[in-house]
Structures are given as structure tokens and as C-alpha cells.
Design a protein around this nucleic acid. Structure first.
Lengths: 140, 140
DNA sequence: TAATTATAAGTAGCGCGCAATCAAGAAGGT
DNA sequence: ACCTTCTTGATTGCGCGCTACTTATAATTA
């Protein structure tokens, strides 16, 4: 039977995620960012301040993943972390001037990657939508 | 302008990879396997013995990833690791009876996952092929 | 008000993923 | 036989991702 197809799709998804992250590396290394950190920065460029939990939800990252990641971004001078005076449980994330300084370069990475993917605009849109719908509501 | 689309696609790929792995977890936990270990087992079920390097190449896993992974599979009794007498540099991987015993159940996971993904056969084939072509030749 | 419950982050431990480095065996040439 | 050179894995270190647990603050309820 076709267990085959299911496993092939799992392989394909596993494989493409690694390739995409690796493809970003040469562009991110000079900025001192990892791929997940890059995704966090994109979220922050879209609007600050943001709560830690809000960021985690948007990116699908667990608290055990995003908290140390944010602490590293703080150490590297990209963000500040501050308790919300209104609710001392929450931590507000803001961008530093150093982060704003590389904003355009960070945004430009996507365009430079796109060229290397040999996929047209319509294909990208279709793929994005397919992936965003895929495996969405199930066990989780 | 449309850095947007590129970043959205990166997000989508990052997100779907995590969701797919998480979707497998409830099925893999009872077997004591992680998702990457599951992929390795599928490769091994397709034919043994296999060299470590061969497995790594097939799965796109680095030696620093697959060597400890295989040692854990050995500890959990799924595989054996043996130097090839013909070439002492190479390590041959074989399945144990314990691994053969769960072979059918491991294979069946893909089918059970497929039901939860609300995507038809044609969609799966198209998606698999699109992903396998995507980001393939570029930096790597 | 006091006690309970809920929520937001942080922390520890394990496994994956990658880069860089190392050691051992094999293959080739001299 | 000897000496390079290449190949195969192993190792180390760091960051991500998850689970489970803990702490601190808020909200709720008795």
C-alpha cells in the first residue's frame, strides 16, 4: 500500500526545512543571527513592543525555546527585555538601535534567497498557503 | 517591496516542519522513537545493512547528528553497529529482532498521520515534488 | 481579607543539527 | 616498505526544540 507516499512527504518536509535554514546561513552569519533568531527579528520589525508569550505564539515557539533565544539576542545587543509595569508577569521586548541599523539588510535577505529558489511568485504563494494549511488542526 | 512573500514562505516552512514532527510524536512515543530516529528506521527498513555515511547522505544528516542518534538507537536495542571487516573505517548498521518486531507498526504511522492532514493523494504528490525541488541546488 | 487558582516566564535535561577538529584505516605513488 | 593523501567516523561545543517543573505575579473566590 501507499505508506510510501506519507513517508516520502515526511522526508520532503524534514529535508526542505533543513535546506532552507542552511540557505539562509551565509546571509545571517555576518549579522550574527541564527535562522530562528532571524524569524524572531522579522516579527519584531513588524512592530514593537511585543510580549514574550505573544512572540512565542506567533512563531510557534515554546517558552523553553524562546526565552533563552531572547536572552541571547539581548546579550548580542539586538533587543531589550523589560517587565511590564502594568503586569509584572509579562516581559516586553523592544529593539535596540543596533537592531534598527541592520533592519534593511535583514529584510533584504528574503529577496536574495528568493532568487536562489527557482520558484515563481505564483508558486511561492501557492506553496505558502498549502504549507500553512498542512498539518494544522490535527493532533495539536 | 515583496520581501513579505519570501519571509512568509520561510515562516511557513519553519512552521510546517515543527507541526509535522509534533504530529508524529503521539505515535512515536509509545515506540520510544523520536521523529529523526523514525526517519532513520524507515531508511533501515528499506534495506540493511547500511553504512553510517550512506544513511547520513540519504537523510541529509551530518555525521555529528547521525552518529549519536545511531548510538542511542543501539542503546535502545533497535540496531547493531559493526565495523566492516572489509574496510575497518566503515560501520555497518543492522536491525535487531526488536526493530523487526515493530516494523509494521512503524510503517503504519504514515497512514494514520495522513488521515489527520486533510490533503488528498494528488495534493500530497504535488507537495512532495514541489518540496523536493525547492531550495535544492543553491548554496549547498 | 485570605486562600485558591490561573497565567507568564524562567530553568533543567535530553535529543537534534551544524561546524570544526581529530584519529584511524585505505589507496596510491615513489 | 615508506610516505603522503583521501576517506570514514568519532568528538566537541553551541544553539534550537520539547517536556516537565518551578517561581512570581495576577485574578478569583470563599
Amino acid at each position: 500500500m501507499s505508506h510510501r507516499l506519507g513517508t516520502q512527504l515526511s522526508f520532503a518536509i524534514y529535508g526542505v526545512a533543513g535546506r532552507v535554514a542552511r540557505m539562509h546561513k551565509p546571509f545571517l552569519d555576518p549579522l550574527g543571527l541564527t535562522f530562528p533568531q532571524y524569524l524572531v527579528m522579522l516579527e519584531l520589525y513588524a512592530g514593537t513592543p511585543r510580549y514574550v508569550g505573544d512572540l512565542g505564539t506567533s512563531l510557534g515557539m515554546d517558552t523553553g525555546t524562546i526565552t533563552p533565544l531572547l536572552k541571547r539576542l539581548e546579550v548580542s545587543g539586538m533587543i531589550t527585555r523589560m517587565r511590564d509595569p502594568k503586569d509584572e508577569r509579562c516581559v516586553l521586548i523592544n529593539l535596540t538601535p543596533a537592531a534598527e541599523a541592520i533592519k534593511d539588510e535583514v529584510w533584504s535577505i528574503a529577496g536574495r534567497i528568493k532568487s536562489a529558489c527557482k520558484i515563481d511568485e505564483a508558486g511561492m504563494i501557492a506553496l505558502r498557503d498549502t504549507l500553512n494549511d498542512f498539518a494544522r488542526p490535527a493532533v495539536e
